[in-house]
Each structure stands twice: as structure tokens, then as C-alpha cells.
Design a binder for these strands. Structure first.
Length: 453
RNA sequence: GACCCGUUCGUCUAGCGGUCUAGGACUCCGCCCUUUCACGGCGGCAACACGGGUUCGAGUCCCGUACGGGUCGCCA
């Protein structure tokens, strides 16, 4: 049997980290077992579905590298891959239930008779769950009245307007598309007995169910689109690497059993991935760790890929990625960047003379006694430097310091602030080399002029 | 409220009855490296929710309680 998994997004918003992780696990499982990964767009809610949302979701999946074998743009033999285009199929399946007398009309809606028996879900992650839909569905919690009210346990599968309900179309499509493994969020575990009842009503074989635990906020609340780290497009915009996001998502709820935490590609995850390593408890999202992981990925990125990934961020700051100084700059920034967006900030002093001076840093420097002399001495020595290399520059700073009988450290901070605008930033001497002799000297003189005269 | 699932450092987790005085990672703190900021190296703080069983022995198995999450829609 060929493994077939699917991710079935509803195009009503952004690609959420939880959805992306579900897609990732489905992708991993399919690839791991030589199977197919299918995308099906669940756009039955015409009022809320939009093309823009669909693009965001599919682009997000592509960015992560979760390519699908069948689905929108990819085609396939089990389409259409949009529920809005599958009405006839649903009608045919409804007819089957009618023929078996398993449905009835209720005020224009169609209800499916749930069986009065124990239904057992054999979940690959959660174990065995047994429920009797007739019993547990016979009452309903009314949030308004805050009490149990009588309810009809039979589930509505078609609305009076003829449109079909999620539980029904989801099962029909999974049957029609030959889905063998349903990997989805644990929020669907309680719905699964309903789905099993439908499978049985159609006389279809059950897929393997695997409900993965949910991701919550750090305070334990449900993650919503407003929460930091919740939306995939934010990772794209903020300079995360897709491999790092995959790495983090994979480890949120799954462990290989070893201490290994860094996986630099989907292929590497694939080697270790196994549904057995998926936890059964919810996890809380830790954006700090996610950033750390991204930093590790940046450190490990080959130079050409690094340049390629950084290019859009450089351009947005007006830096030409083809500039001959860029590769050296990137290497300088690499060790201290958590995101690609950080990189441009670090290397900006090389590319612009319009520096933004960090006020606390400036205060720290100008408040020191004798700073005017330090700066002018420094400028003079650097102007006279005949060997503008890291060694030559270092020697000049050293000479400047000695001429005033001061330690070199006393010169490093002022030099850093005057030429780079802040006490923080990339390695000073290589940065000076890249900025260039004339610009360095004039920056120091201008700085002195501006703040110490 | 009913039903379902879960519970190891603040967080992600290892652990599948003795090797656990509970291991790794993030965060935080200290030290070292560094004539700067980082990076890096070393070290430290910090957990088996609680109560009963079962067992020679329980983080590991069972039951209960507490807590957390989910489902209970003519949303998906």
C-alpha cells in the first residue's frame, strides 16, 4: 500500500505555525515512506475563503520546501483539489447514505444517523479512544445558558442551502483521494469517532489516524494570529531560514530520542523522523529558542546560499548584493545575527555615511575626559596609516594609544561609536578596513566636531 | 457541565521497572577567551503535579484527585 497523506488548509487566513507543523509532519511521513503528499483546499465556506489567503498559505508551504505531489498547481489523478469543485462527488456519497437509509431530513438540512455503539479510535499517537456518539451527543453545552441542553446526536452533513459540512466532505475526500494516514491536530481527536462512523457507513477502510499535540503560547493559552511567532509569513519577512523554521517546528512535539537538536535540512529530519517519536502532550512555543536555532542555521549556511538568502534584505536597505564588499561583510555579521534582517543592521556602516548614532553609546563616549584629544589623535594616526589592512589599522590605533600613554581599549570604544554609531556591532578593525580609510577618518573628525566642540 | 486527551527543570525534551544522587538544549547567572560588541569554551541555578496502590524495587505500571488542553455548530 502506498502511503498517502494530506494537508487540507482552509483558505480563510494566514498560514499558521500550527498548520505549517501539521503540513510538515504529513510531508515527512509521506516522504519517509515513499508515499505521496496531497494538498486539498477546504474552501466550502465561500463567504470566508479568499484567493489571497490561498496564495499566502501555498506560498508559505513552498517557502518551507514542503512540495506536494498532488494539489493546486501540481494537478493529480484525484482532483479537483478544491472542495468547492467537488459538489457532484459529495452528492453521490450522500446518495449512498440515502440508499442505506442512514440520513434524514431535518428542517431542510440533512442529518446522518450516528450508530448507537462504542466507536474505537486506534490512534497512532494517542492510543485507543472509545466513545459512544449517541450517548455523548445526546446533550450539548450551551455556553450562553451555561448548562446542558437536549441535543440531536445525529450530525448535520448538508445545510438547507445544499452546501456540505466539514465532517462529511473531509471524510469523503479522504476516501476518494485514497488518504491512508490522517495526521492532524489533536483538536480533531474528539471529532474522529464521527468520521469513523461515516467511513463505516460508506463501507470504506479506515485510514491510520495520528493526532499530534497542539502548540500553545508560553503562558499556555491558545496561539492566535496575534501572537509572536504564530504566522509563517512573519518568519519570511523577518529573515528566518526555512530550514530553521522546519527544524524548530519538527522538534516542537517530536524527538528522535537522541540529544540531537539541529537538523539543517528536511532531508536530515527525514533520516530520524518517526511518528513514534511524537509526544502526546501539548507544547508551548518558545520564540527565543526559535531565534537561537535560526542563528545556528545562519552560522552553518554555505557562503553562496548565505548571500542568496540575504540579498532581499540587503536590497531593502539599499545595499547592492553584488557589491564586492558584501561577502566579507556577511562573514563579519554571520556570528552575531539571529536573523537575516539583523545582518543589514550590522553591516550598514560600511554602506552608508548617514549613520544613526545610538544616544546612550554617544553619551558614554563624550562624557569621558580628554575625549577630544583621543579622537583627534586617533584620526591623525589613522589618516597617516600607510597600510590599510587589519594589521596596519591595528598598529595605527596602538600607536595612537601609546602616544597618549593610554591603553588600546580606551580607543576602541570611541572609535567604534564614531565610525559605527554604537558600542555594539561587528568586529571593529575589519569593519574599519571595509569602510575605508578616508571615510573612517572623516567620520571620526565629524563626530568630534559634532559632539565635542 | 458532559465526554476525550495530557502532566519530567520557566520552556523544548531524554527516560520505555533497578544503570536516575534524573541527561541534553533554550533562557538566566558566573568564569575564561577577546586591547571593543559578539561568537566560542567551561561551570552554575532549575523538574519527575499530588495521594493511594502493584512490586524486593516506580519518573517509568494501575487507580483516584488536582491542574492544563480539546470537543460538544447548519465553522473548518
Amino acid at each position: 500500500m502506498t502511503v498517502r497523506t494530506r494537508f487540507a488548509p482552509s483558505p480563510t487566513g494566514f498560514l499558521h505555525i500550527g498548520g505549517a507543523r501539521t503540513a510538515l509532519y504529513n510531508w515527512l511521513y509521506a516522504r519517509k515512506h515513499g508515499g505521496k503528499f496531497v494538498i486539498r483546499v477546504e474552501d466550502t465556506d465561500a463567504a470566508r475563503s479568499t484567493d489571497a489567503s490561498q496564495s499566502i498559505i501555498l506560498d508559505g508551504l513552498r517557502w518551507l520546501g514542503l512540495e506536494w505531489d498532488e494539489g493546486p498547481d501540481a494537478g493529480g489523478d484525484n482532483g479537483p483539489y478544491f472542495q468547492s469543485q467537488r459538489h457532484e462527488i459529495y452528492q453521490a456519497y450522500l446518495q449512498k447514505l440515502k440508499d442505506s437509509d442512514l440520513v434524514y431530513d431535518d428542517d431542510g438540512a440533512v442529518r446522518f444517523r450516528v450508530p448507537d455503539k462504542e466507536i474505537t479510535v486506534n490512534d497512532a499517537i494517542c492510543g485507543t479512544v472509545t466513545v459512544n456518539l449517541k450517548k455523548t451527543g445526546s446533550t450539548r453545552w450551551d455556553p450562553e445558558a451555561k448548562k446542558e441542553v437536549e441535543a440531536n446526536p445525529d450530525i448535520v452533513i448538508r445545510r438547507p442551502d445544499g452546501s456540505f459540512i466539514f465532517h462529511f466532505v473531509n471524510v469523503v475526500d479522504d476516501i476518494e483521494m485514497g488518504i491512508t494516514h490522517v495526521i492532524r491536530g489533536e483538536d480533531h481527536l474528539s471529532n474522529t469517532p464521527k468520521h469513523i462512523a461515516l467511513y463505516e457507513a460508506f463501507g470504506s477502510d479506515l485510514p491510520t489516524f495520528a493526532h499530534i499535540p497542539l502548540n500553545l503560547n508560553k503562558d499556555g493559552s491558545k496561539m492566535s494570529k496575534r501572537d509572536q511567532g504564530a504566522l509563517i509569513h512573519e518568519y519570511i519577512e523577518n529573515g528566518f531560514l526555512p530550514a530553521a523554521v522546519n527544524n524548530y517546528m519538527a522538534l516542537l512535539g517530536w524527538s528522535s530520542g537522541s540529544d540531537r537538536e539541529l537538523y539543517f535540512s528536511l532531508d536530515e529530519i527525514l533520516e530520524d523522523f518517526d511518528l513514534k517519536g511524537v509526544n502526546s502532550s501539548n507544547s508551548k512555543f518558545d520564540f527565543e529558542k526559535c531565534k537561537w536555532m535560526n542563528a545556528e542555521h545562519i552560522k552553518a549556511l554555505p557562503a553562496d546560499k548565505f548571500l542568496q538568502r540575504s540579498a532581499p534584505f540587503l536590497e531593502s536597505e539599499g545595499i547592492d548584493p553584488k557589491d564586492s564588499r558584501v561577502p566579507a561583510c556577511l562573514e563579519l555579521a554571520r556570528e552575531r545575527a539571529e536573523t537575516l534582517a539583523d545582518i543589514t543592521k550590522v553591516i550598514l556602516p560600511v554602506f552608508t555615511d548617514n549613520l544613526e548614532y545610538d544616544q546612550p553609546s554617544v553619551e558614554k563616549v563624550v562624557s569621558k575626559d580628554g575625549m577630544a584629544e583621543v579622537l583627534s589623535t586617533l584620526a591623525t594616526h589613522l589618516a597617516e596609516c600607510g597600510d590599510w589592512t587589519t594589521d596596519g589599522i591595528k598598529a595605527s590605533i596602538q600607536a595612537a594609544a601609546e602616544s597618549l600613554d593610554l591603553k588600546m581599549g580606551a580607543f576602541m570604544f570611541p572609535c567604534r561609536v564614531a565610525t559605527m554609531g554604537s558600542t555594539a556591532g561587528a568586529d571593529l578593525v575589519p569593519m574599519l578596513e571595509l569602510i575605508g580609510q578616508d571615510r573612517v577618518v572623516s567620520r571620526i573628525r565629524d563626530f568630534k566636531e559634532k559632539y565635542l566642540s
